[in-house]
Design a protein around this nucleic acid. Sequence first.
DNA 1: CAGGATCCCAGAGGATACTG
DNA 2: CAGTATCCTCTGGGATCCTG
Lengths: 135, 135
Amino acid sequence: MKNHSIVDSQPDKLKTGSKKFCPVNATIGVLSGKWKMRILWELQSGVKRFGQLQEAMPKITPAVLSTQLQTLTTGGIISRQIYTEIPPKVEYELTGIGRSLVAVICAMETWGIDYIENSDSSYDSECLWNDLIAN
Amino acid sequence: MKNHSIVDSQPDKLKTGSKKFCPVNATIGVLSGKWKMRILWELQSGVKRFGQLQEAMPKITPAVLSTQLQTLTTGGIISRQIYTEIPPKVEYELTGIGRSLVAVICAMETWGIDYIENSDSSYDSECLWNDLIAN
DNA sequence: CAGGATCCCAGAGGATACTG
DNA sequence: CAGTATCCTCTGGGATCCTG
């Protein structure tokens, strides 16, 4: 199959770093996913088990939570500790880079506060996260 | 179970309205959309016309560009100047709150740079934005 | 030039059920 | 307890064509 990869179509200066990724997009890639940010937010307060995350987010199904945790783990954003015992026990925790990513989310929070205050009635979207946060 | 939700941890003035919005989600709501951030990024350099945005992002179709611009406009993130003349001319520009939102995107960029450097081989996603940025 | 109107589809994510 | 395995739904965006 013809590999017409994106990288190959880039100008030379973009290729000669072996791999030059757009940083903004890298961040988007890591954060995209309905529950990723919310999960990271939960892990701010420390190590959490699978079940604890489920309790914190009652509306997420195990299947989805599992996949989101997997991509976050393979991305190096969170770490996964497995205790081989009965019953099983698995703990998730923010990595160093994960913690710095939460800082970015905090920047979003700060902007959001300002935005909500200054847009008195123009923006009245239903809040997904209120939904996620509720219960 | 004690509700220690994110909302409850916000300042009182945010809670007193019957509608409590999650700031993080408000930001997500504003930014969600495949091309929103990219558009804001383009507008960093100043006022741009519809056609100029299209040139900068050849892969976006007029229909999509139009809708994304509309939601950004109604959200107060960008402003729209219509010149009633023939041929038509419309200019888009970041608002004040829009410029501060770009700062958030910059935070994402900064984190992304760090992330790419420190994850030498773990994260090799294809970069959507390279794609979007190219051409 | 700057878009609206339609139609269409992939793919993220939900529902449900099962298991090491 | 901490997930998998299937199946299914729904919607954001792309393709295409049209117009004030």
